[in-house]
């Protein structure tokens, strides 16, 4: 393999297929032709107020989750928890007994967190693997029917998912997959967008690199695994994050397919905790504690992998 094509250099020089992964995170020094002048202060105030609006609900969720129940149901509300306590988290995680939570169906947040994690991890690995295999074939291999298949796949992306809702349910019922996790994993693996996304990344891999590996005696799968995958890892990371988040947060699928409490995912469990039909609604302090725990994994991924996260998510909009 020629030296200039090692995976690291490639990754660095790789242009994101959508131009979305290239958001600059440092100010653009060369480009400030227009001075905002006197407007600067006003703009700053506006930006700050907007910032408060966007962040306040999170603050409220966290601060309420630290209040004892007695401090929640009062008017006027406390802006700051005067008697902060971690008990809500211990209660909702079932680490201390709770009188307030009516565990409907006998499940706990812990169990649904585990369920969601298993489903989302299997889905993410499967999705990235299948999409990158197919994406590689579409980008770099010549075969009969390639363009037609690809165009056909893209054309179906125009049809919104709601059209497939009923037919998919009927198929799942026929397969006896209702009340299993399969409907939450398998249909999502067939998302055309993922293949499209991977294909765009694969096209940036130079043909010479693949040819060189072929001459060295690498088989098709070897080329994919040893040459192409290392180069397109950033694309796979973005797709993985995007897929994981979508699956972790998915609500409609679990709502339709899961009736057994022990199979519930986190969003479904939260909806249950929040449901008005319940004889005893969950106290807000516990509900907010559960909500915060549920968004924590995605929040952490976002904070540590912002770049991939934004690239995957904004391009994922194509879906």
């Amino acid at each position: 393999m020629p030296e200039q094509y090692d995976a690291k250099t490639m990754r660095r020089s790789q242009t994101n297929a959508f131009g979305l992964g290239n958001l600059r995170f440092s100010p653009r020094q060369s480009w400030r032709p227009f001075r905002a002048g006197a407007h600067v202060t006003l703009t700053q105030i506006g930006l700050f107020i907007a910032f408060l609006i966007f962040v306040f609900p999170f603050y409220w969720m966290v601060s309420s989750s630290l209040k004892p129940m007695a401090d929640i149901y009062i008017v006027p509300v406390q802006l700051w928890p005067t008697r902060p306590t971690f008990n809500n988290y211990l209660e909702i995680m079932r680490l201390i007994p709770s009188d307030e939570i009516d565990w409907r169906g006998g499940i706990s947040l812990n169990r649904t967190l585990l369920n969601s994690a298993i489903i989302a991890i299997i889905y993410t690995i499967g999705s990235v693997f299948l999409a990158s295999l197919a994406g590689y074939a579409f980008a770099k291999m010549r075969f009969k029917g390639r363009n037609i298949l690809f165009l056909f796949m893209l054309a179906t992306m125009m049809i919104p998912n709601s059209v497939g809702l009923v037919p998919t349910y009927i198929i799942m019922a026929m397969l006896q997959w209702v009340n299993t996790w399969f409907p939450l994993i398998i249909p999502g693996l067939a998302t055309p967008f993922s293949v499209f996304w991977m294909r765009q990344y694969m096209t940036t891999v130079p043909d010479e690199m693949i040819e060189a590996a072929r001459i060295d005696g690498c088989g098709p799968f070897g080329i994919y695994w040893r040459v192409v995958v290392p180069v397109v890892l950033p694309g796979m990371a973005a797709l993985a994050i995007f897929g994981f988040m979508g699956n972790w947060n998915a609500f409609m699928g679990p709502l339709i397919y899961l009736n057994k409490p022990e199979l519930y995912t986190v969003p479904l469990f939260l909806a249950l905790l929040n449901s008005a039909v319940a004889a005893r609604p969950t106290p807000l302090n516990l509900l907010f504690a559960a909500s915060f725990i549920s968004i924590l994994p995605i929040l952490l991924i976002f904070l540590f992998a912002q770049r991939y996260f934004i690239a995957g998510l904004t391009a994922g909009s194509l879906k």
């Binding site: 295999l133 197919a134 075969f143 056909f152 179906t156 198929i171």
Partner: peptide, 22 residues
């Protein structure tokens, strides 16, 4: 045959859960 093998896992699922439902 490799290209077909590569796209097969995706396309089998896509056929059943992507295209057919439409």
């Amino acid at each position: 045959t490799a290209p077909y093998v590569f796209i097969a896992p995706f396309f089998i699922l896509f056929g059943l859960f992507g295209a057919f439902p439409i």
